[in-house]
Design a protein around this nucleic acid. Structure first.
Lengths: 349, 349
DNA sequence: ATGAAAGCGCTAACAG
DNA sequence: CTGTTAGCGCTTTCAT
């Protein structure tokens, strides 16, 4: 277990000063080619590699970014992380992942832990609790301390920062419109409670699409699911609500669900009731994940392009980090919208 | 954008020395209660929080651990990360995630990047390429530099470190035995190429279970899929292979697949051929993910307990980190086996 | 009870 | 061309 070599050691062995070694390794023109060669050869021999931590302390930059998400067991967030990693690594950044588990306090604690010098900036999707409490103080504090922040997916206007959002409303509109075009007359919506921004926006899209087609939305056809479904125990609740919907409205022939799980569960319930898909009932979900692809019938869905979101978020963040450190004039904040695509599969005609 | 307060600033404002402030904040008995109070009050006022980087440099501990995985868009790894995060955070550690994308060089680069002081230890599941090349030099180097390493899931004996593995062979045995008990006579296996350790071990379990029941394994019933299926484009290849299997062996009445995707695809093909599940064909997969739960019929599966694996890995790693820094006598390496559970659902009788 | 000083590993302004 | 020095923020030993 040999210890990591330091500049000091190299210097001592070569009998030159530390700064000479430091400069030589950077090909400084101040140093003679001769010593440069000697130093480099020796450094390679001892397998010298600079200590990141020391560099961070010196440069006041850690070259790592923190991403805070509500849950990692979730295809969409996973895609986003992948996008962030790809872009960040290419730029020489590492990525620290913090999980809030949908809890406000976890989110705060995680961010505070990282804000104490561990990271150069944050990429965040708010926890459900934070959205409910509408307490954004920790975000604003972070920003005040000069740590840039990019929010994605679960966005809120109150926070002055860069944002990357999905075009939730448009995506939902498109889905519902497609359902209508394909002959659906009575389309139900399975969505979240309104405090979830993406649920709210997708609900908006649903209503707008109906209105645009001269259809008055029927409140009874809108299921606002209470529990965030990532928490798997609430599935039964969902199933029974959907059963009730079918019981009361035999003629529902279309369903738009704001995530793929709701959609898949709806299909399952429908099948168990002997309703055939897509003949009697067409279904479109949101988020293009594993479930959609491998459900049977496979699920038509609005694709969110999580990986692109992650990339874009990382890009905005690193740009902002550069701006801060180079003391450039501050640029206005960006709000990037990632457009959605409709992927048609077997659950629609 | 106010800057972070430092000890120095506090000291200047309070007109005491830096070391006094430092000690006061730690309730050092060397400092009078009076100054302690004063310092603390002022520190709180200015919202002082210590700089992690400076601490890391001083202590030579970063309080962060690096986890390197082949792919994050994968339920199992995601569960493991969650387990690692939970345990690590509780112990005051952060988690840096590195993705190898199943590539050897990415794995090496990622580890080198982090090994330069950014982390106190690694938790790793090898990339597919690494398993193929059987080049473990980077792991050994890391260990030589005194950075502890815990491997999980994709394990290899050649590396002297702590390990957390799934009981792949037993899990597979149990699955096949269950299939037999439930009346299956001719059981096919869908597995990976042998260089994937977990695939190899599960194949072993399959063969052992058959042998134990006096059945001679038929090579034709063993499909060794070439491409790692996480790469989604190779699905068609899989489907056609499965079709061929059914064409040549009408009487296959059981399938054991080494992951849930293979199993779900097999069910899909079977259904498309009019084979009813579980009546004519019973299926068991491996890994208890979203797909298994929400497939229709829902998939019986061997659960790997990814979250427990992550927790255990983090526990072993942090223990090892403590050992290293406290210069305790080295303990022998642990190999923890996480036992599997069989979850019976609709795809078996 | 308080402070000065060294040092963690590295960089860079300044001197020679 | 090479070396000295100060400093990043903090801890800790050793004076005082």
């Amino acid at each position: 277990m040999k210890k990591r070599t330091t500049l000091k050691e190299l210097a001592k062995e070569l009998d030159v000063s530390i700064s000479t070694v430091s400069k030589a390794l950077k090909n400084s023109p101040e140093i003679s080619q001769d010593t440069i060669d000697k130093v480099k050869a020796f450094a390679k021999l001892l397998n010298y590699r600079p200590n990141n931590i020391a560099l961070s302390l010196k440069n006041k930059k850690t070259k790592t970014i923190g991403i805070i998400i509500p849950d990692i067991v979730h295809h969409f967030f996973t895609k986003v992380i992948k996008g962030v990693e790809n872009y960040a690594n290419a730029k020489g950044y590492n990525v620290i992942v913090g999980l809030s588990n949908e809890s406000f306090s976890n989110e705060v604690i995680n961010m505070e832990m990282l804000a104490n010098g561990s990271i150069d900036g944050f990429i965040v999707s708010m926890s459900r609790e934070t959205m409910q409490h509408q307490d954004y103080q920790h975000f604003n504090e972070t920003l005040n301390e000069g740590i840039p922040l990019v929010m994605f997916d679960r966005i809120v206007n109150e926070i002055p920062c860069d944002k990357v959002a999905v075009d939730d409303t448009k995506g939902a509109q498109m889905a519902v419109k497609t359902l209508l075009n394909k002959g659906a007359k009575k389309i139900a919506l399975i969505t979240t409670k309104d405090y979830v921004s993406v649920g709210r926006l997708r609900t908006k899209g649903y209503i707008e699409a109906l209105n645009a087609n001269g259809i008055t939305p029927i409140p009874e056809l809108i299921l606002k699911i209470d529990d965030d479904l990532l928490y798997e125990d609430s599935l039964e609740n969902l199933e029974s609500q959907i059963k009730m919907l079918f019981a009361q409205h035999h003629d529902v022939d279309g369903i738009f669900a704001v995530n793929e799980l709701y959609a898949v569960v709806a299909m399952k319930v429908a099948k168990s009731l002997g309703i055939s898909i897509p003949e009697q009932l067409q279904v479109i979900g949101f988020t293009d994940g594993m479930l959609s692809k491998h459900a049977s019938p496979s699920l038509s869905t609005v694709s969110q392009h999580g990986e692109s979101m992650g990339q874009k978020a990382a890009e905005l963040l690193i740009q902002r980090i550069d701006e801060y450190t180079s003391e450039k004039p501050p640029q206005p904040f960006n709000s990037v919208i990632i457009t959605t695509d409709l992927i048609l599969r077997e659950s629609t005609k």
